[in-house]
Amino acid sequence: MNLFRFLGDTAHLASILVLIHKMHTTKSCRGISFKTQALYVAVFVTRYLDLFYRWVSLYNFFMKLFFIGSSCYILFLMKTKFRPTQDPAIDTFRIEYLLGPCTVIALIFNYKFSPTEILWSFSIFLESVAILPQLFLLQRTGEAETITTHYLAALGIYRALYIPNWIYRYFTEGVVDPIAITAGLVQTGLYIDFFYVYVTKVLQGQKFELPA
C-alpha cells in the first residue's frame, strides 16, 4: 500500500458516497446512467470473486465488500425508489459493444488461462470503459447537476491516482502489471474532456454545460 493508492481508493469510496448522497438529497437519479452503474456491479462481482479464496488484508476485504454492496444498493435504488426519475430514453449506449470486445480481449490478454484470471482481466477491461454510457448520457443532455459532476470528478481522480501508484510500485517493488496499466491509462484518458469542463466551469462556480 502506498499513499497514491490509498488516496485513489479513498476517492473511489467518496465518489460512491457522493452518488448515494445525491440520490437521497435530490430524491432523484436524474442524469445518472443505469447502464454504467450496472456495468460497475459486473466489474466488482467478477473481480472480487477472490474474496472466497484469497486473503489480502482487512482493508482489502472490507473495501471489496463495500464496492460490491454499494454498487448493488445503487442499482436497487434506481430500480425501486427513484425509478420514476430515471429516463431510459437518454441512456441509450449499446453496452453489448463493450461487453463483447472486453470478453474477447480478456480471453486473449490474461495472466493465466483460468476462469478466475480471465474474469479478473475482463473486469479490468470492462471497468476501463464502464463510464462510457454515463459520458454518453452527459454528452446527450449537454449539462449536469453540480453534484453529479463531483461524483464523476472523484471517480476520475481515483483512476488518475492509480497511475503514480504503478510508477511508485515499479520503483519500490519492481512490479509491472501491463493489463492494469494499459486499461488504467485508457480509463483515465476517457475523463480528460470531462475534467477540462469540470475545472474551467464547475470549479469556477459555474454550471456544467457542454459547448453547443
Partner: peptide, 10 residues
C-alpha cells in the same frame, strides 16, 4: 506465470 502482484489492488 508468477502469482500476480496485482491481486492486492482493488
Amino acid at each position: 506465470g508468477k502469482e500476480c502482484s496485482h491481486h492486492d489492488e482493488l
